[in-house]
Structure formats: structure tokens, C-alpha cells
Simulated scan of single mutants.
Amino acid sequence: MSGSRYTVASAARGLDVLEAMAKHGKPMGASEIAAAVNLPRPTAFRILATLQERDWVYKEGLTYGLGFKCFNLGANSGAGLEIRTQAIPFLVELRDKTSLNSQIAKLENWKVVYLERILARNLRVNTPSRAGSILPAHCTALGKTLLSAKDMEQVSDWASKHGLERFTDSTICKVPNLMAEISRIRERGYAVEEGEREPEISCIAAPIRDFSGKIIAALSISGTRDRFPQGLYDSDFSRLVVASAAKISRAMGAPSTSTGTKWNY
């Protein structure tokens, strides 16, 4: 019997769309995707809407990109991204210097997606620990760092439309307060989190750039408050995080002028 008799046409078209997007390597418009897989635009749009609803793709403006579930599937099957390969030695070094968890993440569909995480020894935390785990953006140091790399008007529109969920008494829940915090992060060059998602967890994060100088990910350390210095700002730990993020950026080919304390936009 031919295997083709068991083929589900709609599933095959969905896979064709994902394969075309993966081959293209960057976000695509619906018409562009339809042309790439030889489908009518309305059909491609329905497939994209279904994939978006299930988090296999994300939509930003008029374009679509591969979602965090595509990364999660690749990560679980042993596939990796270049940034993970470049970052792991620095994550281990940072973990050993601070005795805290170290991790890198990117922003997908306004959510923080772990690319890699190195857990501290003998440190009990309640946060997710697997590559592909998802965190909110507005109340995490990683998320605020990544939001700071986006257009401020887009961030404000997103936050106003979707709201800012409260997790603890310290969570930023008002859009103007979030925008003010993002401005401070841009000026400072790193973000901090003090009990904003979990009451006893603190975090420091800094941006990672690619060869073009674009911020593509963020690096952070995290752990219980008692494992951090008295203050997170302008501390030895914050300087270590910024320096480690700069090292990974240089390994990714970032220009040396884009990996200092201040951010270039």
C-alpha cells in the first residue's frame, strides 16, 4: 500500500508552511508565505491563524515568525541554536562565580523563552529550569531587558492591549510605570528584578547582540534574595552579568562598540 493514502492534506500544508518559514530564516508576510508554498492567500492565512493559536508561529505587525514551540521541539530533539553553543561556557563561568542560576532567553510573541539554563549547585528555586520554558515579560529581568530592545510605542501598545498581570505586590502593573522602567534600563544597560514574579526571587539581566549590533537575547542570573549582595544596582554581580553578556555578544560577532554598559539604538 502506498503511504500517500494516509496523508492528511491540511497537516501537510501546515508542515509546508513551517518548512518554508524555517528555510527563509526570518519573519515573512502572509502573501510571501502563500507564494512560497503555492497556496491561495486565504488558505495560507487560515493555516497561519491555526499555527499562531497553538504557538507554532507568532505574528508581529504584518509578518509571521516561528514560535517558541518550534524551538522547544528542536531543543528537546537535541537541536541547538548557535547562541546556545556560544553561551554555555559563559553561563557555566557566571554560575560558578556567583553561585546562582544563569540563563539566556529570547522574546517570542511577547513572551520570554529560555534558550538555555545552568542551575546553581545546592540552590533551591521554584522557577522553570528547562530550555523552552516560558516566562512573562513585564515582571522578569530577562523580559524587561528584551522589551527594552523593542520600539517603545509597540511595547506601550502591547502592554495597554493585553494588560500587565499582577504576580506579587512588587509586580509592575501600570503601563506608564513599565515604560519608565524600560527607559531606566536603556540608560543603565541592565535590568533587575526583585520579587516581581516570585516574592523571594531576584534577578539581574543584560542584553546579548549579534554581528549587526541587534539585541537578539538576554543573559541573567537568578536566585533567592539572600544570595545576592545588599543591593543589586551597581553591584559586583551586575557588572559580572554585563561583562558576561558582552563576551557572548563578541562571540556572536557583535561590534565592540555595541557591547559596553550603555545601549546603542
Rank of each mutant, 00 (worst) to 15 (best):
196 E>Y: 02
122 N>F: 07
121 R>Q: 13
232 L>K: 04
95 R>S: 09
201 I>W: 05
59 K>R: 12
28 M>A: 03
159 A>G: 02
3 G>V: 12
37 V>K: 06
135 L>D: 13
52 Q>I: 04
242 V>I: 11
13 R>T: 09
220 S>T: 07
97 K>Y: 07
118 I>Y: 00
184 R>T: 00
207 P>C: 04
239 R>T: 08
212 S>H: 14
94 L>G: 00
49 A>E: 14
1 M>A: 14
254 A>Y: 08
96 D>R: 08
62 L>I: 09
139 C>D: 13
16 D>M: 11
42 P>Y: 06
235 S>L: 07
153 E>Y: 07
113 V>S: 10
62 L>R: 12
159 A>E: 02
212 S>K: 14
64 Y>P: 01
159 A>D: 08
38 N>M: 11
248 I>N: 06
105 A>R: 03
69 K>A: 10
241 V>A: 03
95 R>C: 07
103 Q>E: 10
206 A>N: 04
195 G>K: 01
246 A>R: 06
102 S>W: 05
212 S>N: 06
204 I>L: 01
262 K>W: 08
2 S>W: 11
196 E>T: 00
233 Y>E: 07
86 Q>Y: 12
129 S>A: 13
246 A>F: 03
249 S>R: 03
152 M>P: 01
61 G>P: 00
148 S>H: 01
60 E>M: 08
168 T>G: 01
264 N>V: 13
208 I>T: 10
71 F>E: 00
25 G>E: 00
148 S>W: 06
156 S>Q: 15
202 S>R: 02
147 L>D: 06
51 L>D: 04
162 H>P: 05
165 E>D: 10
49 A>I: 05
30 A>C: 00
48 L>R: 01
67 G>W: 07
65 G>K: 02
127 T>F: 10
148 S>D: 00
192 V>P: 06
216 I>G: 00
86 Q>N: 12
73 L>G: 09
57 V>T: 15
104 I>F: 01
254 A>F: 03
112 V>T: 07
239 R>I: 00
193 E>V: 05
77 S>N: 10
24 H>T: 09
5 R>D: 14
231 G>R: 04
48 L>C: 10
45 F>Y: 14
83 I>W: 08
151 D>M: 02
103 Q>S: 15
74 G>L: 13
51 L>I: 13
11 A>H: 15
236 D>W: 01
198 E>V: 09
128 P>T: 04
190 Y>Q: 00
5 R>C: 10
115 L>G: 00
46 R>H: 11
149 A>K: 00
161 K>M: 11
208 I>V: 11
111 K>Q: 15
61 G>A: 01
209 R>Q: 10
193 E>M: 13
85 T>F: 13
86 Q>E: 14
60 E>G: 12
177 N>L: 10
75 A>N: 08
151 D>Y: 06
129 S>D: 13
